[in-house]
């Protein structure tokens, strides 16, 4: 197969002369648009319907941040500061007290007014127990009336987690794992 091909220029084709004289080119276009007149429409009536049969927000959507918690309600964050370091826009701020294993998370804010939704923080998080410690949620309607409203505190981020679909999936998964563990234990006891 040749690497390069010449495009076909269909201009000045003498055969087409009569075709043009009787407006056939225009007719072809008109027929196409008329056909569309009664076809099924693809508009999604956004504020009234937020998902359709063809589309719903995918799980990977990089929406609002959330701080995930385990099934006992404890934050998974281990205060390693990886997300803070990787963030190109410096929108994550973390403060903790104590040292070593005794660390307590005092402050964890995400400033959405700077965030460019690159998703690097989610990737950088080293925690991996079912979910990462900081996760993207499917929430995308983020407009607020004041700039202060764009700064999400630790509590807000935790609330986002419980509002999201992901938390439900994660909790279910955790429960299943627990059940399996219990089964395994029973089996080992039996044997």
């Amino acid at each position: 197969m040749e690497d390069y091909i010449k495009v076909k220029r269909e201009v000045g084709n003498r055969k087409d002369e009569m075709w043009y004289a009787f407006l056939q080119d225009l007719k072809a276009g008109l027929c196409l648009t008329l056909g569309y007149l009664f076809k099924k429409k693809i508009t999604m009536q956004y504020p009234y319907e937020k998902s359709t049969a063809e589309w719903s927000i995918p799980l990977r959507w990089r929406g609002l941040h959330a701080l995930s918690a385990d099934e006992n309600g404890r934050l998974k964050c281990i205060m390693c500061l990886q997300c803070m370091k990787i963030c190109p826009d410096h929108c994550i701020k973390i403060r903790f007290s104590g040292a070593g294993k005794e660390r307590v998370l005092e402050e964890f804010t995400v400033d959405l007014s700077r965030c460019s939704a690159c998703g690097l923080c989610f990737e950088a998080c080293p925690v991996n127990s079912i979910t990462k410690a900081i996760v993207p949620t499917e929430k995308y309607e983020l407009s607020v009336y004041s700039r202060e409203g764009l700064v999400y505190k630790k509590e807000d981020l935790l609330k986002n987690w419980y509002d999201s679909v992901k938390s439900r999936i994660a909790l279910e998964k955790a429960e299943n794992m627990k059940k399996e563990e219990v089964k395994k234990e029973e089996k080992s006891v039996e044997s």
Binding site: M1, Y4, I5, K6, V7, R9
Partner: peptide, 22 residues
């Protein structure tokens, strides 16, 4: 991969249109 690169001849807007379509 098997693919071809279209090229035009006259260098006018129509040629660039055809090239991009192809």
């Amino acid at each position: 991969f098997n693919f071809q690169i279209p090229v035009g001849e006259k260098g006018d807007t129509y040629d660039r249109y055809l090239v991009r379509m192809e």
